[in-house]
Write a protein that binds this DNA or RNA. Structure first.
Lengths: 80, 80
DNA sequence: GACAATTTGTCCGTATGTATT
DNA sequence: CAATACATACGGACAAATTGT
């Protein structure tokens, strides 16, 4: 295992943010949508919610994303 | 819920490290032992391995702990 | 080298709680 | 009240690394 799923997801999200595809304040797709999306991107038949959540939760903890219950997950504004 | 289990565990570990009870390089009790320990400390009948792992994994990601497969989890040396 | 025991690492699927619309 | 969406927790399965026999 070169890189576990959750790290690949973190890397992908970071790449999109860095590329400006998802700028600060942008709302990410919902958890359910991201799961379907990364199933294709990671070419796996199964991707558990807990695994995707692991990736997202990690980035929230690191301040790269901001989760708002009931609303969505957003790209954090730069560290002011 | 004032503070979820995994955050209470993080706070407790940080407190022990800060107090010098677990100095840098110290090997933490094994996952199984920590589960039993925190079941008492958090006064809960059940504490899943995944929940404890959440706390530990978070601190590893933040560089406060260092995990070594097959060996154990250690208090990280100061951020040099 | 082979094997078992121990321990951490990843992932699965599900259930329930909480906040927003 | 209902729908949507994130947040926490459960418990188990298997992989991978280390140590000792």
């Amino acid at each position: 295992m070169s890189m576990p799923y959750y790290r690949q997801i973190v890397a992908d999200i970071r790449a999109r943010v860095a590329a400006g595809e998802w700028p600060p304040g942008h709302k990410l797709p919902s958890t359910a949508e991201l799961i379907e999306f990364y199933k294709v991107e990671l070419d796996t038949a199964t991707l558990a919610p807990s695994t995707l959540r692991h990736a997202i939760g990690l980035m929230i903890e690191l301040g790269e994303l901001r989760g708002q219950q009931g609303l969505g997950v957003f790209v954090a504004d730069g560290p002011e």
